[in-house]
Amino acid sequence: MKRIVLFAAALAAILSGCSIEPVQPWDRDLLAEDAMQLVPHPVNEYTADHVYFSKEAASGGAGVGGGGCGCN
């Protein structure tokens, strides 16, 4: 439970915007680049995640769903 509380505190810090410099809309040029997307290469990430999923006990985190597999 302690972990969840900590996490909630981190979320609150972000939501309240404290200690975050506001990024003006006209300064978002870099953020628009392909390389700065959260998942820049979705298909490559899919194959890598499939390997990890079939070889490890832990999985998920980045999203929900995405096809079951009898490999684990």
Partner: peptide
């Protein structure tokens, strides 16, 4: 059968920084 739920926040922190936090329950 499985059920999953996720709550996430993605924040632009600066012109150069993007951050994401997710909590998932399954």
């Amino acid at each position: 059968t499985g059920f999953d739920a996720m709550l996430g926040i993605t924040q632009v922190l600066s012109r150069r920084t993007l951050m994401q936090f997710n909590y998932s329950y399954g």
